[in-house]
């Protein structure tokens, strides 16, 4: 009896020694702040004073009905994500086909197209800020190509496109690599069979390659979706959220609300809504993935 209890205790001690370190850190720096966010979202805390009042759902109702900046940043993030998901995946497949071909340069091309993925997004944003406003402009004037002299980062109405372009540049390499793995997983016999059947390369792509790439498409769409919704570093360095706040993503909006406007209460409320939104998107994705697995 006592030996059973002591062996149980010993087992618990072993488990604790394996899981304890990460548990403590995880609870301290993730679980506690998460709970904190939830609680603070019902207060008017400004982050400076030590006292605050409970305000019920006011932060939430204000956010949904009164603050235009939150709505704008929500819309911007949705538009950016939609554009980014399409661009990254279309070009990802195209580049994968290119570097899966018989070209001698295909290995070098893979390394080149993937390279922006290892550079920090802060650096990428600044790099393109320079490129847009100086090099492209001068090339446009010298070559007489007016479309290059356009103030890419200066027009609030079209700011979405240069940002999506830079985002494409920085992340298409990863999509390419995942699609490449998918392409290489297609058995050679299948390709040959299609050749024998006399299918043209266009039909072959739509009827065979694309359906067989489905798993890669699913993981890539998931990946780009969550990454686009969370976009922060890239926009911070490329446009700083401007001009005139036209490119404030949700992540930037929350950051500014908390640390520039000093509204911790409202900032946490926004961050909770942001989180719920992402969780819902991910759950929908899991559902879709499940159903695809069943049908496949």
């Amino acid at each position: 009896m006592s030996s059973g209890a002591s062996s149980k205790l010993r087992k618990f001690g072993i488990t604790l020694s394996f899981i304890g370190p990460i548990c403590i850190l995880y609870i301290c720096f993730f679980v506690v702040p998460l709970g904190g966010s939830f609680l603070y979202s019902f207060t008017d805390w400004d982050g400076l004073q030590s006292t605050f009042q409970w305000v019920g759902f006011r932060n939430y109702t204000d956010m949904l009905w009164n603050s235009g900046d939150f709505r704008d940043s929500f819309l911007f993030t949705l538009k950016f994500s939609a554009l980014n998901i399409v661009l990254v995946n279309v070009f990802g497949v195209l580049l994968a086909l290119l570097v899966d071909s018989k070209l001698k340069s295909k290995y070098a091309l893979r390394v080149i197209f993937f390279s922006p993925n290892v550079i920090s997004l802060i650096v990428v944003g600044f790099l393109w800020k320079f490129f847009f406003s100086s090099v492209l402009y001068e090339m446009g004037t010298k070559l007489g190509w007016d479309f290059l002299t356009y103030s890419f980062l200066g027009n609030p109405d079209h700011i979405l496109y240069p940002i999506a372009g830079v985002s494409l540049w920085s992340s298409v390499g990863l999509a390419m690599v995942i699609y490449l793995a998918g392409l290489q997983g297609i058995p050679g016999e299948l390709k040959e069979a299609m050749h024998v059947d006399g299918a043209g390369s266009w039909t072959r792509f739509w009827k065979m390659t694309l359906p067989l790439l489905m798993p890669a498409i699913i993981s890539n769409v998931f990946l780009t979706t969550t990454n686009s919704f969370k976009v922060f570093d890239l926009i911070l360095s490329l446009t700083g959220g401007g001009p005139a706040n036209s490119s404030q993503s949700l992540a930037i909006n929350i950051y500014r609300e908390a640390f520039t406007a000093n509204s911790y209460g409202s900032g946490t409320a926004r961050s909770i809504v942001f989180c719920l939104f992402i969780v819902i998107v991910m759950l929908v994705q899991f559902r879709v993935m499940r159903s695809k697995e069943v049908s496949a």
Binding site: F29, L34, S37, I278
Partner: peptide
Amino acid sequence: FFTLSMMVPFQTIMIPLVKL
């Protein structure tokens, strides 16, 4: 319990984390 955090964006814990 652990993978819960993979769904939570950093902005959601950021504010209390700074305070902490």
